[in-house]
Nucleic acid binder design. Structure first.
Length: 427
RNA sequence: GGACAGGUGGCCGAGUGGUUUAAGGCAGCGGUCUUGAAAACCGCCGUGCCCGGAAGGGUACCGUGAGUUCGAAUCUCACCCUGUCCGCCA
């Protein structure tokens, strides 16, 4: 959500910024909507003020038992009535029109975000780790999982449908181990507070982080009107909705391990094989709520926390700075972390860390203030995967595979697998 | 799911149609007094939006939305949420 005042003050800068997202100029039409809204409010306020004054005089006249004067005044105010309700409707209509228009516009890219309309313009910032040299042709995760008899795509299809998978035995345990490992890392080493949140949320919550009104098709919805969360970012960030936080309490650092549900409405035909793109997957999410001046540093810190998971698991990765056209709508700057998948012979996204600036905070009315000082400011919100558990599992399978199809368990996970060092085909 | 009771500012709490411009208290901030502090006393003390260079003025907000009325925190309707009891339940 954008501040119309800022657009009014510098329409050219606003249009230039949204152009980087591939959008046509909007400032002129927004300012026109705002002018109508302000004119309507000025007239409504003035007329309402007149009514309030006269109504008080009626009260005073009645108190003095001056019925004649009261009746005269009532007749006078009565004439205002139709006009007043028309003005009120008009004002509200313009207010809603402006809010609706603003709510559809994505965040403005930060100055240091590169130009570009798709992933081809993303910049690689750094690499970590060296892809392992295999003495055999590495397999993809689905061949490994099926070979172990622990990844059952047919059962997923039977129980639910395409893009659902059943995992069994030590593979299921490995997935659990990954989630626990990540949570422990972020809570004990990076100060994130472990949180359990609703997996179903209401309209206001889905609006706050930007899923609504534009992207409802990407979410599953219950027949009772709840939205199934596509990421724990949604409930975690909305904890700040309609709150004024003492600045001494910031930053908030929150983490949660949750299932995520995505309809993948626009992804027909992509990544249909295997577990890369599922309707349901687990993810450890990181959310930070900060003072405006702290969000850039927090963004680096959060990204480092996510990278640390891969470093501890000894999985090679690279970190990308997304270009303006490849970022999600809420973000003003995004780092993607891509893990090396030897079976696919390429890097694949495993985490996305975004600084949303005040774009979500304005939608949520999430503010902070220095106690005793006048006024409030919108907080900044950040979110990042720390990491997507399903994709991390894939990365472990492909990077730790042995020639016989078994999987070595990374050292960092041993405390979480009860000492199990190797996953082999079930007897 | 059923019955009853509720929802008022950062917190507590009064307020059942017209000086409510939401009493009073707590917390907070400033001041007087004091060597300093406490106490006492005095003052300030919600969030938007609109107009204005500013000073200031207007307007909205008492769970949400609609309605009645010249006028609604107060009356009506619907919905949401909370509490208590009953039922059901991991």
């Amino acid at each position: 959500m954008h501040d119309i005042k800022i657009i009014r003050e510098n329409p050219a800068a606003f249009d230039a910024a949204i152009a980087r997202r591939g959008l046509s100029p909007l400032a002129e039409s927004l300012i026109a909507l705002d002018a109508k809204r302000r004119a309507a409010q000025a007239e409504f306020d003035a007329t309402q003020g007149k009514r309030n004054t006269l109504s008080k005089e009626i009260g005073a006249a009645k108190a003095k038992k001056d019925e004649a004067r009261a009746n005269a005044l009532m007749a006078e105010v009565g004439e205002l009535k139709d006009r007043l309700s028309a003005l009120e409707a008009e004002q509200k209509q313009h207010e809603v029109a402006l809010a609706d228009a603003l709510s559809l516009i994505p965040n403005l890219p930060a100055a240091d975000v590169p130009d570009g309309l798709d992933e081809n313009a993303n910049q690689e910032l750094r690499r970590h780790g060296t892809p392992r040299a295999f003495a055999f042709k590495p397999k993809e995760h689905f061949d490994l999982g099926e070979g172990l008899g622990l990844m059952d795509f047919e059962a997923g299809i039977k129980l639910a449908g395409a893009r659902f998978t059943v995992m069994r035995g030590q593979l299921a345990r490995l997935s659990r181990a990954l989630g626990q490992f990540m949570l422990d890392l972020h809570t004990t080493e990076f100060g994130y507070s472990e949180t359990i949140v609703p997996l179903l949320v209401n309209d206001d919550t889905a609006f706050g982080t930007g899923q609504l009104p534009k992207f409802g098709d990407d979410l599953f919805r219950t027949t009772t009107g709840y939205w199934m969360i596509p990421t724990a970012e949604v409930p975690l960030t909305n904890l700040a909705r309609d709150v004024i936080i003492d600045e001494s309490q910031l930053p908030w650092r929150l983490t949660a391990l949750t299932p995520c549900f995505r309809s993948e409405a626009g992804a027909a035909g992509r990544d249909t094989r295997g577990m890369i793109r599922q309707h349901q997957f687990e993810k450890v999410e990181l959310v930070s709520i900060t003072r405006p001046e702290d969000s850039e540093a927090e963004h680096e810190r959060m990204t480092a926390a996510a990278e640390t998971v891969l470093k501890r698991l000894d999985l090679p990765f690279r970190t990308m700075l997304l270009c303006a056209g490849d970022m999600g709508g809420a973000a003003r700057k995004t780092y993607d972390i891509e893990v090396w998948l030897p079976g696919q012979d390429r890097y694949r996204e495993i985490s996305s860390c975004s600084n949303c600036g005040d774009w979500q905070a304005r939608r949520m009315n999430a503010r902070c203030r220095v106690p005793g000082e006048k006024g409030t400011r919108f907080v900044h919100t950040l979110n990042g995967s720390g990491l997507a558990v399903g994709r991390t599992l894939i990365a472990v399978l492909e990077n730790y595979q042995q020639e016989d199809g078994s999987i070595a368990v990374p050292d960092a996970l041993l405390p979480y697998t009860g000492g199990l060092k190797k996953i082999e085909k079930a007897a």
